[in-house]
Structure formats: structure tokens, C-alpha cells
Amino acid sequence: MTTKTLSYYNQNAQSFSDSTLNVDMSALYAEFLPLIPKHGHILDAGCGSARDAMYFKQQGFTVSAFDASENIAKLASNYLQQAVEVKTFQQLNCTNKYDGIWCCASLLHVPKVELPQVFLKLQNALKPNGVLYVSFKYGDTERVHNGREFTDLNEDGLTALITHHTELKILKQWQSVDQRPERESEVWLNALLTRSELINE
């Protein structure tokens, strides 16, 4: 995440958190959670308000979470009632740790040139057969909007990225509309990926 984008989130932490906390994500949970073992360990990567981490926790999953914004992580820690780490995707360094990784509207702030390396880190952090959920605003450009930098992806862009740079396998890709009021015209690309057991360590 660029300094500019990080500054935006640190300065607007409370209003951003408030605006996303009550968004209905049930349709996305219904795609992801059935693929995670009961009581499995889920990482909410770029957790924002910790809305999703809290839901996973309430469903009996073990949850870890991080966010790049110190101010947002502080709010998320209070809400989740557990520590939320302050770190970026580029600082994720673990192996075979998570049954599922949830990257909801968070990877879209990673510059396109850094996405291959970040997807490798996510792949390594997953257990064999672990599942990764990602979402991006739909498109194929890098752009600045309201003081934040975005990397937009469509199906072809994501497929190329995964195929050329990782051993992850795409289980499913689909489009959805934004669930926030006044944002219905915004389209999102969603995808579920898995780490194949055949990966050579």
C-alpha cells in the first residue's frame, strides 16, 4: 500500500470503519466458509473494521487479522476483542499456517507490479488445500480515486496473474455489485482459489 493510501485510512479510520461495519456480506460468506474445516484457522488479511473476522469468530473459527493502517487496526482490535496486527501483505511471512485466507477489498491497494509476489506469500501461508478468497474492483487499470490508489482486475487479469506466477488454482470467479448504499453501480470481481497439495516445498 502506498503512503498516500495509508495516510487516507489513518486519517479516516473511524468513518471508514463505521461505513463498512454493517454491510451484508452473507452471500460471500456462503461461498467461502463451507470450504473451511470446522474450527479452522482463518486469516482476515487487510481486515478493515474486522466485520468479517468477527463473523468468522462467531461461527467458531479460529481467527487472525491484520491491517496496514495503525488507526484502523486499533479500532478493529477493540471490536474483535483480540489483537489485530499492523502489517502489509508484503510483510506476510509464514508457511502452511491457515485453512483459509480472506482478502476482501484489500488486495486492490497493492500495486499491480507487486501482486505476483503477494500472491506467492498468500499461497505459502495457506495449508495444502487451503482456500483463498479475493476481491477487486472490476476493470483492468491502476488509478487514483478519492486519495487512494487502486489496482482493478477482471477475470482475464486475475487468471493471467495466478497462472503465470503461482501454483494456486482458481476454483471460481464471479461478479457482484457493491452492497453499500449509493454504491450499487460498482461491480466487484470475486474469486476463490486453492493451494494444491502437489506443490513442492
Score class of each variant (00 low, 15 high):
residue 115 L to G: 04
residue 43 L to H: 04
residue 34 P to E: 12
residue 32 F to D: 06
residue 48 G to A: 10
residue 72 I to W: 02
residue 28 L to H: 15
residue 107 L to S: 05
residue 45 A to H: 06
residue 117 Q to P: 01
residue 97 K to W: 00
residue 56 F to M: 13
residue 67 D to C: 02
residue 52 D to K: 02
residue 49 S to W: 05
residue 52 D to R: 05
residue 94 C to K: 00
residue 32 F to Y: 15
residue 89 F to E: 11
residue 49 S to Y: 05
residue 18 D to C: 06
residue 82 Q to I: 01
residue 23 V to N: 06
residue 33 L to C: 15
residue 108 L to E: 04
residue 16 F to H: 13
residue 85 E to H: 10
residue 62 T to K: 15
residue 20 T to W: 04
residue 108 L to G: 01
residue 92 L to F: 09
residue 98 Y to N: 08
residue 70 E to A: 10
residue 92 L to C: 10
residue 65 A to Y: 02
residue 117 Q to N: 13
residue 107 L to P: 09
residue 102 W to T: 00
residue 41 H to N: 13
residue 59 Q to F: 08
residue 77 S to R: 08
residue 101 I to W: 13
residue 18 D to K: 13
residue 19 S to C: 09
residue 40 G to M: 06
residue 99 D to N: 14
residue 34 P to V: 08
residue 17 S to H: 01
residue 46 G to E: 05
residue 49 S to L: 08
residue 79 Y to W: 12
residue 89 F to R: 11
residue 79 Y to M: 11
residue 105 A to K: 02
residue 56 F to N: 06
residue 25 M to D: 15
residue 26 S to C: 07
residue 16 F to T: 01
residue 38 K to L: 14
residue 23 V to G: 07
residue 35 L to M: 11
residue 28 L to S: 15
residue 17 S to A: 10
residue 31 E to S: 10
residue 35 L to Y: 02
residue 86 V to L: 09
residue 65 A to E: 05
residue 100 G to N: 13
residue 101 I to Y: 12
residue 87 K to I: 02
residue 85 E to A: 13
residue 96 N to D: 15
residue 39 H to I: 04
residue 43 L to K: 08
residue 105 A to M: 08
residue 103 C to S: 05
residue 81 Q to A: 14
residue 116 P to Q: 11
residue 13 A to V: 04
residue 51 R to V: 02
residue 70 E to L: 07
residue 64 S to R: 03
residue 87 K to Y: 08
residue 93 N to D: 15
residue 27 A to K: 14
residue 41 H to L: 15
residue 64 S to W: 04
residue 104 C to T: 06
residue 33 L to K: 10
residue 75 L to T: 09
residue 24 D to L: 12
residue 112 K to W: 10
residue 72 I to F: 07
residue 30 A to Y: 02
residue 82 Q to K: 11
residue 51 R to G: 06
residue 15 S to K: 15
residue 91 Q to P: 04
residue 35 L to V: 01
residue 70 E to I: 01
residue 103 C to K: 06
residue 95 T to Q: 15
residue 41 H to M: 12
residue 104 C to A: 15
residue 31 E to K: 15
residue 118 V to M: 11
residue 68 A to K: 03
residue 61 F to V: 06
residue 85 E to M: 07
residue 50 A to N: 02
residue 91 Q to I: 01
residue 16 F to G: 01
residue 116 P to E: 08
residue 84 V to N: 05
residue 44 D to Y: 00
residue 119 F to D: 12
residue 47 C to P: 00
residue 118 V to D: 06
residue 56 F to C: 03
residue 52 D to I: 00
residue 45 A to L: 09
residue 70 E to V: 02
residue 34 P to W: 10
residue 47 C to Y: 02
residue 80 L to C: 08
residue 32 F to I: 01
residue 111 P to A: 00
residue 72 I to L: 15
residue 60 G to F: 03
residue 89 F to L: 08
residue 57 K to F: 03
residue 116 P to D: 13
residue 110 V to P: 14
residue 111 P to S: 00
residue 30 A to R: 13
residue 109 H to I: 03
residue 62 T to E: 14
residue 41 H to T: 13
residue 58 Q to M: 12
residue 39 H to Y: 12
residue 16 F to I: 00
residue 53 A to D: 10
residue 121 K to D: 04
residue 19 S to H: 10
